[in-house]
Design a protein around this nucleic acid. Structure first.
Lengths: 142, 142
DNA sequence: GGTAGTTGTAACAGAAGCTGTTGCAGTGAG
DNA sequence: CTCACTGCAACAGCTTCTGTTACAACTACC
């Protein structure tokens, strides 16, 4: 299965919605988005469901239904997208509690949490620098 | 299974080796390390195998065998440990190629690789700032 | 109203990864 | 030679991810 592609899928979806908005198309259905991502519509609906719960997209149900961005693409950062679809931290601590008899086992978890926190914050800071509008611009250049 | 604890296990092992070195114990066996991490010796040997391939630890085989650090703990960074035990990038691209008929499908992968590269580099920069000696110091404080 | 198109969600299969475990061959100091 | 340890393969159990099917709920439009 390799790495998880949730952020990629969600960003692809939002970028596609941003392009549609710019072209005057009001809403897109999950089928239409799925055709661009080249996957199953249910995958897209799952991702869009996460994005909707985070307030990044809006849905219209019933006939003629579909999805649209809830905000301008300049105001959606990849950090928000990441938080909407991916809750796992990049580094995990021990699965089973280390041996507390050992000085290393006793103190290492808070020590590692510190370091992991710094690394994660650095990554998040970088994701916050890029918006969906930036991704769209870069995408159309390529 | 949740998140990946490889970096945690490997750092725990190295920190323990660093403490042993400071206490005058030359080598530790995988059984002894496993007792501190509170897991199976084979897990430790797998991790130590990765670290040995990366040149961070040395092994003595045969009777009276065991492991020791290949360098001073001040000169082993968590970035090196991370690279030794974890090769998966934090973000993955699409599993199946997106639809190249679509402008977004065509250009999004290089655009995302850029962003992911920046985020990953930021994280790596942070991991490179911390050494095993730092972790040991922080560990003994707690 | 009825109909048709679309979302929301549950259920399931298949693949893959990780940890944990057992077993055994290889190795080298004493 | 022996013994203690490593190296490694094989396997089980669990979890997660993608992908798929199926179906109820919803609503614009005729």
């Amino acid at each position: 299965m390799a790495a998880n592609s949730r952020l990629t899928i969600a960003t692809h979806v939002l970028t596609w919605l941003a392009l549609a908005r710019r072209s005057g198309r009001e809403v897109l259905t999950s089928d239409q988005v799925a055709a661009s991502v080249n996957t199953n519509p249910v995958i897209i609906r799952r991702s869009l469901g996460d994005l909707r719960r985070a307030g990044l997209v809006e849905v219209r149900r019933g006939a003629g239904a579909g999805w649209s961005l809830a905000r301008a693409p300049e105001e959606i950062t990849l950090l928000e997208v990441h938080d909407a679809v991916d809750t796992e931290p990049p580094f995990g601590l021990h699965h089973t509690e280390p041996n507390l008899e050992c000085p290393v086992g006793r103190g290492i978890r808070p020590a590692l949490s510190e370091v992991y926190g710094r690394a994660e914050r650095a990554m998040r800071r970088e994701l916050a620098e890029t918006s969906i509008a930036d991704v769209l611009r870069e995408t159309l250049v390529n």
